[in-house]
Design a protein around this nucleic acid. Structure first.
Lengths: 221, 221, 221, 221
DNA sequence: AATGAATGAGTCTTCATTCAT
DNA sequence: TATGAATGAAGACTCATTCAT
């Protein structure tokens, strides 16, 4: 009986259809893992929150690792569908970049617990985890990579753009930027951050040196 | 008043000066923590690697948390000294940025275990940890922030540069970029990555506005 | 995320209904605690005596302190029931005093281990302990206090009787008296001791003031 | 490094005469044991408070048990001297009883930590402890026993007085009475308690039934 | 399908005591 | 005589996982 925070447990129900019980446990696991983190969360916590008995969880998930993996892959699946749907409707590369940056920021803002879980646990190298979550992360970041590659093709981006590095700067930058927010400190202004990051991605921070093509708005000229 | 009787005790191992033993345990802990991560590592592992009995570790470090904290803060201290020494000798902002980017990449390349430890455990919010490591991370990232701010002052960078966001993109980008390497997959080409990242920081990925086609797409011309 | 893998687990022992196992552990704990005392007893001792694995004890009792507390409160509950039942059937105050004195002596004679445990551990001020055992001791001693108070009301006892002090002398006296027996030295003659103590309580040890030699010095004659 | 309360340590001094060091450690031990109790106190606590290094304590006391035993026997020796000195000057048995009762109450009031230590640890049956403290407790209680026996001889007390039982009631009663005070709750009024207890010892609480020799002052005649 | 009792291998941490220096 | 580093044997408590019912 750890001094853990236990939330109002759902009353146990009997004989649910398999799929429904599965979803219930998954949802409970998401809450518990997000709130406590992987290590601190216990299977007992999950079972209780799901209104199920401990051993029963193992009928649906063969181990704790698989359970987190499913929670995370679930999130990725949902996110992937959403991105798929939205991104195809955005014509310009620039707008697509803007959308993807903002989308990731929104994810961090709206599901900080889950994102912290992903960021922390994704880098584990656990085989069980990799097997399940594996490609999903790649497919997720692929949206940005593809957008950048298209930008190169269309000429909106320099031909020598180091696409993967730029992608890393975007995702890594967003996650770093949100670190304080994830830690419960401060807020996260999605739109401002997205605008600034997009600008940095496109023009960098260096002063444009040419005479003929003066830089930004604040040019005294 | 335990009824158990203590056993007669075996021959004592070699007796080291306090500082030496401290360093020995610290070094052992660094290895163990870097290899297994904080949670998976046990104090028994550390003690064994240090050639010491488990209980003896506690003469030098009052808890496992303090021990990691010391390992990490030790690294930061060394790094901070080094940065301090080097950075002050680099005149131009551009060169300083290049140096800081490369330095962080080198850290990841040369101490992947430690860096993974830091990246993972730094975001824990544990008070023991924060107390000790606390400001070190800030002081570390401050070097880049200061360089960027100076760039703004000297006019090498745009006056409206979002300094903190850019700093996050650099550190986050580097760490993301090194993720595969940290996971034991692939290599890390410090110089190339540093060059590319510096370029992105300064000019971004957007097409250079030529005379005929000045700045961005939304240019009214 | 421990890297250690759990072992395949051995054949499970017999499965008892919850209440039965609870009682079994409680009984084992009583024996162990009484024999060794609280500090010297270990949860492993208790588990072994109960024929259960150590960790399983914690399914029923959340801590060692709670376990002793339950053992002790269990005894009090039983004793309280018994006293309740018996005392109400005894009409005269004198008989009631005699009964309560003898009953406490019998408790010491018949459950010396448990009584030693109570006497030693009751005075600990541990919150877990107090929470559970708390009022039970007071309710136990209240029987004597109430009998004395009634004696005062009925005139069988002097109106200025210091009830609490007298109660302390009875309980403290009995416990002191039984100390040698509790230590395993000598025997305990309940009836004789009860008779003598009752006499002391009622008349004290002072010479009875006869007609010719009236009581104490402060006798006005 | 336990979260224990450590008091201002005396600075280590070198090369004290043996006897002086011995006393210093003993004094430190008394403080520590009284404050924390035997089990919770550590040899490290004692050493620190004595301004001595841990291992050095063992040059003067061969074990923790012996150390407490010495602390306790020290107290008894002092007390015994004091009683010896005082008691011989008190002529009447009655006064002597009054003095001994009050003296024990004062001990409890003035050295609650030590008394708690004695009361708790004296009943352990530890051979090391018994060997050292052994007879002291008996010699201490003997003062009261002798006074009672003399009372019997002189006729001030009934010839059939159960001396040992009465002695137990006095000491046990006092200790029970002081229990709340020892637990840090409430105060201890030595004089009142002594008066009341003396009266109980001499006359008991029973209403004197005779016509010819009416009882106390509050008798309506 | 569901239950939940039972397992067992850890985890961290504490401390009396010894002994090389 | 003094030091304090080192020992080692517990000890309380946790938790993923299994399996009889």
């Amino acid at each position: 009986m750890p001094a853990r925070v236990r939330s109002p447990a759902a009353p146990a129900r009997k004989r649910l259809p398999k799929a429904e019980r599965y979803e219930g446990i998954l949802a409970a696991a998401e809450q518990v893992f997000c709130q406590l983190g992987y290590d601190a969360a216990t299977m007992a916590d999950v079972a209780q929150r799901a209104g199920v008995v401990e051993g029963n969880v193992y009928r649906y998930f063969k181990s704790k690792r698989e359970l987190v993996a499913r929670v995370v892959s679930d999130w990725y699946s949902r996110k992937l569908d959403e991105l798929e749907r939205e991104v195809r409707q955005i014509a310009s590369v620039r707008s697509r970049l803007r959308y993807l940056i903002a989308a990731h920021l929104r994810s961090l803002r709206d599901s900080p617990g889950l994102m912290r879980l992903i960021i922390r646990e994704l880098r584990t190298g656990d085989p069980e985890f990799s097997r399940i979550v594996g490609g999903l992360n790649q497919r997720y970041t692929a949206f940005l990579r593809l957008a950048l590659e298209e930008g190169v093709r269309t000429g909106e981006l320099r031909p020598d753009t180091p696409v993967r590095l730029l992608r890393d700067m975007v995702f890594g930058g967003i996650e770093h930027h949100a670190a304080r927010y994830l830690a419960g400190i401060g807020t996260l202004d999605v739109e401002t951050a997205a605008d600034q990051m997009l600008a940095l991605v496109l023009q960098g921070a260096g002063r444009v040196p040419t005479m003929s093509a003066p830089s930004q708005a604040e040019d005294p000229a």
